[in-house]
Amino acid sequence: MITKEQADFYKENGYLLVEGVFSTDEIGMMRKAMDGIIERAASTKFDHNAAWQGDFLPSEELKKLVLKGFHDVHYHDAIFTRALSHPNMASILSMLIGPNVQLHHSKMLVKPPENGAAFPMHQDHPYFPHEKHTMMAASVHLDDTDEQNGCLCVIPKSHKDGPVGHVGRHYLNHEQYPISMGTPCPAKAGDVLFFNYLTIHGSGPNRSERTRRNVLFQYRDPEDMPSEETHVNWGQGLMVCGQNPIFKAYKGAH
């Protein structure tokens, strides 16, 4: 699915956009599944706005922004289980991580039209640090994205600098790391942006009349051990490629 040159680009720059990983029909099924999750969540106490808080925007502006986000979407609809282990995904992951690839978690993010919240620049590392830093995100685009509707922006090669100090574990200092510092990664529905969890990234608000929907899968080498027991859940550890060389009894988080 990708060439050695593309794999080398990822290792050098910390990110890689791969076009056409999922078909139009597959994207349509994921959109329908996402709508169902949102509809079911809306009738429960678990529905919430996942917009980031902080001093990067005035408080009155923050109140207007919306970001729908739910973790572990593969627990809610089987289409996402099929997507995260799709043959195209497995082919790419085996070249970027290695022969053995394990799922860490999944989530969905929806930026609604005109008031979809920004993501300040950050690394994913503080949320689930690992020893060997093989952890990566695969952001599946369910809609065409550009700067108008808040596409992801990355700072190339920033993964080489290692962990960077964050503000309260959530985001980097917005004056030192403005979103404008990043390289925009516009994409089409069906494209997937892969990036290392040390790669600094973020996205602007959705100022368009179009929804921006993404599904995010986090993967790792199963021999890459967490340095902190954070972000643990009872379904973690699904093997996507190869085998797990470490045999142990898996049990849920308490």
Rank of each mutant, 00 (worst) to 15 (best):
S139D: 03
W52Q: 11
G168L: 05
I79A: 14
H141V: 04
P184S: 04
S23F: 11
P178I: 07
R207L: 12
R212M: 10
S23V: 06
G116I: 10
I200Y: 07
Y10S: 06
K160Y: 04
I97F: 06
N233M: 00
F247H: 03
E175N: 15
K248D: 10
E131A: 09
Y127E: 06
S203G: 05
M1E: 02
E223L: 05
T230M: 00
A249D: 08
V167G: 02
R31E: 12
V21F: 10
I79P: 06
H130N: 13
D161Y: 01
E223G: 08
E39F: 14
I27W: 00
F70T: 08
S227I: 15
I38K: 14
V164D: 02
L16W: 06
N244L: 07
S106L: 00
G204E: 03
N173E: 08
I246L: 14
L103M: 07
K160L: 14
F119P: 00
S94F: 05
A33W: 09
M121H: 00
H74Q: 13
S180C: 02
V192R: 05
K32L: 11
G116F: 00
K248N: 07
V140M: 01
P226Y: 09
L65G: 04
P87T: 07
L84I: 07
G28D: 12
S59P: 00
M89Y: 10
D143E: 07
M239S: 03
K4A: 12
L57W: 05
G235Q: 05
F247Y: 08
V215K: 03
M225V: 08
L17E: 11
K107W: 01
G182N: 03
A33N: 10
I97G: 02
H174F: 13
M181N: 04
L57P: 11
E223S: 08
Y127S: 05
H71L: 00
V240Y: 00
K11Y: 08
D72C: 07
P129D: 04
M34F: 13
E60A: 05
F22R: 03
G69C: 04
V192S: 04
C153P: 03
D72R: 13
G28Y: 02
G202M: 02
A253C: 02
Q236E: 14
E114Q: 12
T134F: 11
A138S: 13
Q218S: 07
A249Y: 06
G204V: 03
G235S: 08
K107L: 05
E175T: 15
M108S: 15
R207A: 04
L65I: 09
T134H: 10
Q148E: 15
